[in-house]
Design a protein around this nucleic acid. Structure first.
Lengths: 171, 171
DNA sequence: GTAGACTCGCTCACATTCTGAGCGAGTCAG
DNA sequence: CTGACTCGCTCAGAATGTGAGCGAGTCTAC
């Protein structure tokens, strides 16, 4: 670890990690503020970003079971965050899309109690901001890919270290 | 939306949001992989970053109730991720600290199925990497602050049962 | 055009996790 | 010592997730 790589390298790893944790905690706080569970908020976010999705797609993206998704959709629909309509081309599917008015409320929370991008990039040159953009974009892609890989691995292993519960341990 | 903002401005907002969502999903996947619940992983992360914390401090940081924290601590201790010892200076407190060996396993998961920082910063100048570092650092601070504010606001709205103290602290 | 394999969203029983209230022990100021 | 406080814990009940399985719809190959 004490190799003379670029000086900022270890800093970057540590900061990125802190940033991750802070992000997770912040998301949870926003969900609470909106009267939603963490999973509900997660799904709503995905819906907003993708425009329209099916339930099974949502299940695949979040790693939740379809049963759990049913609950999420019901709650989000009951609270008016989500509109549901049958897919005209496939009778099995339900197309889920966020309701603009409610989504605006979510955006308002972000605006009121969210990070201010202008402040975050204050004093940066255009080139530096571009670098940030590139980093975030690449990181997003990698994170999505890694999440999929992790989930696939869990399925393949069939649950190696985590079958039912903590089997060992009883000193 | 055709304002004269800097070209990268809206992009940055959108990308940051996508990055947040991806981060949350990734954290959840990692937790599953480790056989932990999302809250358990969140607490473990905080523990790793801060070295040693008390239960009540953890509750304040995560927004969980002390009852939930008790469960988290029991699970983490049972699976060997956490070591607990009474505070020598205050008989009420339990000092919680992560177990290095187990934490190394967590790090291994990150190394194996996590984003590769070298790739994320590939082709960037020292100056650009510094900009990324600055951005992440500032964002982390703001996110933490915003989460606290959100939670405080939620307490005001709802029934203020417990005196929520999560501010101060700046070593 | 129909049989069989698939997908989709749903339900149900059960397990796990979180909340909310309250408790005993410990700390500290007066 | 007394009283106000903090700390971690317990307990009942609510919320949320899992896993298996179902009926309806779709697709492919006969």
């Amino acid at each position: 670890m004490s190799r003379r790589v670029e000086p900022g390298r270890a800093d970057l790893a540590r900061t990125a990690r802190r940033h991750s944790t802070a992000t997770v905690l912040y998301h949870h706080a926003v969900a609470e503020r909106l009267g939603l569970g963490p999973s509900d908020h997660k799904c709503l976010d995905l819906l907003v970003q993708h425009g329209e999705l099916t339930g099974s797609r949502l299940a695949a993206m979040t790693g939740l079971t379809t049963g759990a998704i049913t609950g999420v959709v019901h709650r989000l629909e009951a609270t008016g965050f989500l509109h549901r309509r049958p897919d005209p081309t496939d009778g099995r599917r339900q197309l889920l899309r966020p309701v603009p008015d409610r989504v605006a409320e979510v955006a308002a929370v972000f605006a009121e109690d969210g990070p201010d991008l202008d402040r975050l990039t204050a004093g940066m040159t255009r080139d530096q901001v571009d670098a940030v953009l590139t980093f975030l974009s690449r990181a997003t892609d990698e994170l999505e890919e890694c999440a999929v890989r992790l989930r696939a691995r869990a399925l393949l292993d069939g649950a190696p270290t985590q079958p039912g519960r903590a089997e060992e341990d009883a000193p």
